[in-house]
């Protein structure tokens, strides 16, 4: 018992120490997790346009794994679509604008991330 509680105390202390040094800035969130928070609701866990909201969407979200479709979009259009929404690049309003949620650095990182998802780097 004494050993157990010592061990337990050690774990608790270690956890506390560990969480104290965790980064606290939003900008430090891994980009996969940013995608998993905001984009997965429509583009899906498979990232191919099959999110949980798909049945409610009249336009299919872009398949981010499709090298051809994504390959045809230049980086600046992808950036614009994410920052100011589908309408701003003559696409559906169902692709929302994320400029009020993500900063330019995160959106740039997202564009790079999408290039790895489609394996269609420019």
């Amino acid at each position: 018992m004494r050993h157990q509680s010592l061990l337990l105390g050690g774990i608790v202390l270690a956890t506390l120490a560990f969480s104290a040094v965790q980064p606290a800035s939003a900008a430090d969130t891994k980009i996969e997790r940013v995608y998993g928070t905001y984009c997965v609701q429509c583009h899906g866990l498979k990232r191919n346009g099959t999110g949980v909201n798909l049945p409610a969407l009249s336009v299919r979200p872009r398949d981010h794994t499709d090298p051809k479709g994504m390959g045809s979009l230049p980086d600046d259009e992808i950036f614009k679509a994410i920052k100011t929404g589908g309408l701003s690049v003559n696409k559906s309003v169902l692709m929302p604008s994320w400029g009020g949620t993500l900063n330019d650095k995160q959106i740039t990182e997202m564009v790079h991330y999408l290039r790895t998802v489609c394996k269609c780097g420019h």
Partner: peptide, 19 residues
């Protein structure tokens, strides 16, 4: 419908993610 937060309660399904 998907609880809170939604992203912890969705799983891949045959046609689209499911709750």
């Amino acid at each position: 419908p998907a609880g809170y937060p939604y992203f912890k309660n969705v799983i891949k399904g045959p046609k689209h993610d499911e709750i």
